[in-house]
């Protein structure tokens, strides 16, 4: 079942439709409701390797719907410490639960100050059509 449109206020947002949940220097990344809705039913998540490094604003993974493939952009820089293994079997968790069960990766962030450039939920919503 598709989730309803929402943008939780406890998350930070990147304009490329990614969210981050920060807990100390550990961050969880995912894509927003708008992103999953635009992509349609997701059928494949190609995760990065645990231990690899991601750079803010660069692609770090691919999400594929039946029709198309989309790069997922890192909202912060750091090192991948965990990937959501459930998505290998159930990539559509990103559709049904984009902020909870459909998280993509956990990252040890290298520069927390980068988070200052991210958006709060209200500012992100204003970017949406």
């Amino acid at each position: 079942m598709p989730a309803d449109a929402r943008y939780p206020s406890d998350l930070l947002y990147h304009p490329e439709h990614d969210w981050v949940r920060l807990d100390g220097d550990l961050a969880t990344f995912g894509v927003t409701w708008f992103a999953q809705d635009s992509l349609g039913e997701l059928v494949f998540f190609d995760p990065p390797a645990v231990g690899s490094r991601v750079a803010k604003d660069d692609g770090y993974a691919e999400l594929e719907s039946v029709k198309a493939v989309s790069d997922v952009i890192a909202p912060l820089s750091g090192e991948i410490v965990e990937v959501n293994e459930r998505l290998a079997e159930q990539p559509d968790l990103v559709n049904s639960s984009p902020y909870d069960d459909g998280w993509l990766v956990r990252v040890r962030v290298s520069d927390r100050a980068e988070a200052d450039a991210l958006l709060d939920a209200e500012a992100y919503r204003e970017l949406l059509p």
Binding site: G40, E41, V43, S65, V66, K67
Partner: peptide, 8 residues
């Protein structure tokens, strides 16, 4: 229309 409820 590319899809309605979903392609699958």
């Amino acid at each position: 229309p590319v899809q309605y409820a979903g392609i699958r």
